[in-house]
Amino acid sequence: MREITRMTDTTSTRADAQRRRVLAASVEIFGRQGYRATSMNEIAAGVGLSKPTLYHYFRNKEELLVRIYSDVLDESLRMARETIDAAATPFDGLRDLLVFRVVYTCENRELLKICFEEEDELGPDLAEELLVRRRAFEDLFTATLEQHLAGHPDLHLAMTPKVFVNMCLGAVNWTYKWYRPSGPRTPAELGREMADALLAVITPESGTGASAPA
Results as ranks from 00 to 15, higher is better:
Glu3Val: 09
Arg6Ser: 11
Met7Gln: 11
Thr8Leu: 11
Thr11Ala: 15
Thr11Leu: 15
Thr13Gly: 12
Ala15Arg: 14
Ala15Gly: 01
Gln18Gly: 02
Arg20Glu: 15
Val22Gln: 06
Leu23Cys: 10
Leu23Ser: 09
Leu23Phe: 02
Ala25Thr: 14
Val27Ile: 15
Gly34Ser: 08
Tyr35Leu: 04
Arg36Ala: 12
Ser39Tyr: 01
Ser39Gly: 10
Asn41Leu: 12
Ile43Gln: 05
Gly46Glu: 11
Leu49Tyr: 06
Ser50Gly: 11
Lys51Met: 04
Lys51Trp: 00
Pro52Thr: 07
Thr53Val: 10
Asn60Met: 05
Asn60His: 09
Glu63Gln: 14
Glu63Met: 09
Leu64Thr: 09
Arg67Ile: 05
Ile68Gly: 04
Ile68Met: 04
Ile68Phe: 02
Ser70Trp: 03
Asp71Phe: 03
Leu73Phe: 11
Glu75Leu: 14
Arg78Gly: 04
Arg78Tyr: 03
Ala80Gly: 09
Arg81Gln: 14
Arg81Phe: 03
Ile84Thr: 03
Ile84Gly: 01
Asp85Val: 10
Ala86Ile: 05
Ala86Gly: 02
Ala87Leu: 07
Ala87Cys: 06
Ala88Thr: 15
Phe91Cys: 05
Arg95Gln: 10
Asp96Glu: 11
Asp96Thr: 04
Asp96Ala: 14
Asp96Leu: 03
Leu97Arg: 08
Leu97Ala: 14
Phe100Tyr: 12
Arg101Met: 11
Val102Ala: 03
Val103Tyr: 01
Tyr104Glu: 13
Cys106Val: 06
Cys106Ser: 02
Glu107Tyr: 01
Glu107Met: 08
Asn108Tyr: 01
Arg109Glu: 07
Cys115Thr: 13
Cys115Met: 09
Glu118Asn: 03
Asp120Asn: 02
Asp120His: 05
Gly123Pro: 02
Leu126Val: 13
Ala127Thr: 01
Glu128Tyr: 04
Glu129Tyr: 06
Asp139Met: 12
Thr144Ala: 07
Thr144Glu: 07
Glu146Trp: 00
Gln147Asp: 14
His148Gln: 07
His148Leu: 08
His152Leu: 09
Asp154Trp: 05
Pro161Asp: 07
Lys162Gly: 13
Val163Pro: 01
Leu169Pro: 05
Gly170Tyr: 11
Gly170Ala: 15
Ala171Val: 15
Val172Asp: 03
Asn173Lys: 07
Asn173Tyr: 12
Trp174Phe: 11
Arg180Ile: 08
Pro187His: 04
Met194Tyr: 09
Ala195Val: 14
Asp196Trp: 07
Leu198Gln: 11
Ile202Gly: 08
Thr203Glu: 14
Pro204Gly: 02
Pro204His: 04
Glu205Arg: 03
Gly207Gln: 03
Gly207Val: 09
Ala210Arg: 07
Ala210Phe: 01
Ala214Met: 00
Ala214Thr: 00
